[in-house]
Design a protein around this nucleic acid. Structure first.
Lengths: 141, 141
DNA sequence: CTGATATACTTAGGACCCTAAGTAAATAGG
DNA sequence: CCTATTTACTTAGGGTCCTAAGTATATCAG
């Protein structure tokens, strides 16, 4: 069980991060799934669902469900434009934009806790290794 | 978005690993969830569902669902002992034990691909950082 | 010994993500 | 032009994991 462990470690860290963030987000009626899309939209508003899926790194059906639920919560609107009736453009509402001020500090706190006491140099190496792993796994399709 | 990215990186690596392993496992009628429990039982047979949950790092209801489905596939048996009718002991069948020879090489291949070209030293640092993160996040409950 | 507590499993229901297959609109080729 | 392909979104269904609440058994305390 040498290299094998790293896959399980990665999985366990993901679960730990999700668990840690979940409680705080829930207080603002934001699920972990919504968080991913909010982050993207705060950076760049008015993306299509396809673009959102690409940015989030998930498949389209996952985005459909999430965005629909965010629409019902009043965080985003979905709109078609006359020049292209196929695309659906997702825009933040004022309510959705306002969440940024509350949620970003929360995520920063969790990251701060997660990385406490770990040398920056090692965190950077980890970041590079993780990116290399994604690259390696993406190739084979 | 400095430290913040590491959370998303970890999540993305998990997804990439799951995707990569999924196809191979599916050929042997093993889902990704079953894989976790099989690995544990190959090491130590006859654990209770509670012990399996602890080992796998998941909650009990998740284990109930998975083990029941593995029982139906004929990979494990569930048995009570007269001296304690509360515990349910899970044992591998011959079929479940036989999967090891097919599945382990498959997982090793995925790990090999994922870590290709990454210096062992850096992988080890990553392993340590990930374990430290789990430790950091476990504390706050 | 018997009531309170702890333990092990189960049920119910929800969130997230996936694959496969369907629909509708846009685009490209003959 | 009009058919064929591609693109964007949707629907259907399944797997994994969670929390909360329920049931049955075991254990502990008075």
């Amino acid at each position: 069980m040498p290299d094998d462990r790293i896959a399980h470690l990665v999985k366990d860290v993901t679960r730990a991060l999700v668990r840690a963030l979940h409680a705080g987000l829930a207080e603002h009626s934001v699920s972990f799934g919504h968080w991913t899309y909010l982050r993207i939209l705060w950076e760049r508003d008015g993306l299509t669902q396809r673009e959102l899926s690409d940015e989030a790194g998930v498949m389209e059906p996952s985005t459909v469900t999430a965005i629909r639920s965010m629409e019902q919560l009043g965080y985003v609107t979905r709109a078609q434009l006359p020049e292209n009736r196929k695309n659906i453009y997702v825009h933040l509402t004022a309510k959705g934009r306002a969440l940024k001020a509350k949620l970003v500090p929360l995520a920063e706190e969790v990251n701060h806790i997660a990385l406490a006491g770990i040398p920056v140099r090692e965190v950077n190496i980890t970041r590079e290794v993780l990116m290399a792993m994604i690259e390696n796994l993406a190739g084979r399709d």
